[in-house]
């Protein structure tokens, strides 16, 4: 009489289970294969020239068929440009996110800012480069420089920093803000001493992702820092180099030696981004509240 009986899993069910399982694993493999093959290719081809010479020398006076030469000028340029871009975009991005979450509260201004941040996220990187070229270099008559490149990169970084910081601030429980207010702590101090430290780990991760994103940008640099084969440690005057530009420049040269340099340049770029990520993880771990437990 009962309608419910204990049944064995039918063959059809088991078959379906297997099928879906296979599909899921397959999708995973398809997603990972390009990633691993890119890493593998870059490491395999890049190791050939990955030596001290490469890391400490520029391309000054290296002829088309000469072996040797390095990317020191490009590494220096990338580090300076990314640092400057971060110095510009991280404070602005952080403050914007704090306004949106803590003060704007869905008002008209904050909705407008939100909209424009979304629009900025979608800006193609070459447009950011063109904007700086048109505004900074051509209209204001400033020279090509590492700083102009940093300006273009900061345009690309800012929306990412705002969005990720906003998400992290929204995750901070309101209970903590109220607990702080109830102690007679003013709002700004609550934000500085309670809200930001609580969201710190997530904010650092978001900033690192933004840095990793812009560190590999080529198009905006081409239009703003120009090219050079020499070391220029001053980002405020004269053409500078960047690693993505270096890779682009070497890869289009017709000799194998140049191609090898391009691979090594790519490897160096990946290593720099990974190193930055590692540093961020360390900072996050060191500041994390769970550490003392």
């Amino acid at each position: 009489m009962t309608t419910h009986t204990i049944r064995r899993v039918s063959a059809a069910r088991r078959l379906k289970d297997r099928l879906v399982q296979t599909l899921v694993y397959l999708a995973f493999a398809v997603a990972v294969i390009p990633l691993i093959s890119v890493l593998w290719l870059v490491i395999k081809n890049g190791l050939a020239r990955f030596d001290l010479d490469f890391l400490t020398h520029s391309m000054r006076g290296i002829g088309a068929r000469d072996v040797g030469g390095g990317a020191y000028h490009a590494i220096l340029g990338t580090l300076e440009q990314v640092l400057l871009a971060s110095l510009i975009s991280v404070p602005i991005g952080l403050l914007t996110a704090i306004y949106l979450v803590e003060y704007g509260r869905g008002g008209r201004l904050s909705r407008a800012i939100s909209f424009f941040v979304d629009v900025m996220t979608g800006i193609p990187s070459v447009v950011a480069g063109l904007f700086v070229l048109a505004f900074w270099v051509l209209a204001l008559g400033m020279p090509f420089s590492g700083f102009a490149g940093a300006l273009a990169l900061s345009i690309l970084m800012m929306p990412t920093v705002v969005r990720s910081t906003e998400e992290m601030l929204l995750l901070v429980p309101n209970d903590l803000r109220e607990a702080s207010y109830a102690l007679g702590v003013p709002k700004w101090r609550t934000i500085v001493k309670v809200v930001l430290p609580t969201a710190f780990t997530g904010i650092v991760t978001g900033v690192m992702l933004a840095i990793a994103r812009v560190a590999g940008e080529t198009a905006p640099l081409m239009l703003t820092v120009f090219f050079t084969d020499s070391i220029n440690s001053d980002p405020f005057s004269g053409p500078q180099m960047g690693l993505p530009l270096y890779v682009f420049d070497q890869a289009r040269r017709p000799t194998d030696i140049a191609i090898d340099r391009a691979w090594t340049g790519a490897l160096t770029l990946i290593l720099i981004v990974m190193l930055l990520n590692l540093v961020a993880r360390l900072i996050a771990w060191w500041r994390s509240p769970a550490r003392g437990r």
Partner: peptide, 21 residues
Amino acid sequence: VSVRRMIGMVFQRPNPFPTMS
């Protein structure tokens, strides 16, 4: 702010600051 220094409050759910000792 000065009112809240005179009149303290304890909430329903314990809410110690997670980043602090």
